[in-house]
Amino acid sequence: MSDAAATRTARSRWLLLAPALAVLIFAASGPLLIVLVYSFLTPGDYGGILWEFSTDAWFNVVFEQDFFTEEVTLADAHLSIFWRSIKLSLLTAFLTFVFGFPTAYFIATRPKDKRDIWMLLIIIPFWTNLLIRTFAIMELIRAEGAINSVLLALGIIDEPIQMLFTEFAILLGMAYVYLPLMVLPIYASLERFDFTLVEAGYDLYASRWRVLRKVIFPLAKPGVIAGSILVFVPSLGAYVTPRVLGGGKQLMLGNLIELQFGAGRNWPLGAALSLTLLAIVMVALILYVRAAGNEEVRHG
């Protein structure tokens, strides 16, 4: 390609990007900037902010200062919420993968005319209101709920298992809610998958398990990566599910942030926590994509 032509393509590329960039800068970065500014201000007594510069909010994200002794300690309450959020989000991504992969595989191997119906069944819950879906899970796992009733009736347990308001409940709820986000991208990559490759694998002495590992999984990997990002990111900031199923006892980051803007009346801390959440997401994504990319290079 000549230099002039190269410049021309470069220029038209920027032109094509311009609308997207404009939206990103004004619609996405604008609010983000406001949040950033707020995180360096002083909380107002009844919520809102005072226009006085302060780094207290950022300090308070990870540290606590005793009111009387002025002793500085790590903010255990916050840290345990960070940890729970990360842990539950990772587990959610893992759980949705474990259930989502076989589901996507199953659908992709159905005859063409049947696949849409199966996909529809996966997507329908997604069209239902999030709260309703979350309450449905609650109905299943509460003390007098369906699962406990059945187990009691069968005599497998003597008293109801406490499932509601535990981390397990949050995990179950999030996995249920976000499952389609895992199934869809995996299905998309498997749908284009050429199943004679599976036969070629069998033909070349690979057992079922090895065909899955060496042929199907590597080719479905872009879908798995996309799916786990799509599940992990909203899980980390989830608000409704931990609120309902964690019952205010098992807070996650989303709840903590909401608390600062509500009852806590500490908007700057809420803003700082929001940005921390964003930072965790970014770091996690960079690490993940890099690890997945390396894998790609090693296995070709």
Binding site: T196, L197, G201, D203, Y205, P218, L219, H299
Partner: peptide, 28 residues
Amino acid sequence: PYRRPVNTVFQSYALFPHMTVAQNIAFG
């Protein structure tokens, strides 16, 4: 099929797209 000392050249070739030429040949 994976226990039969028989190999197939498929009509569509069915080469593994995520592997190099050498890796494809080494697979079996």
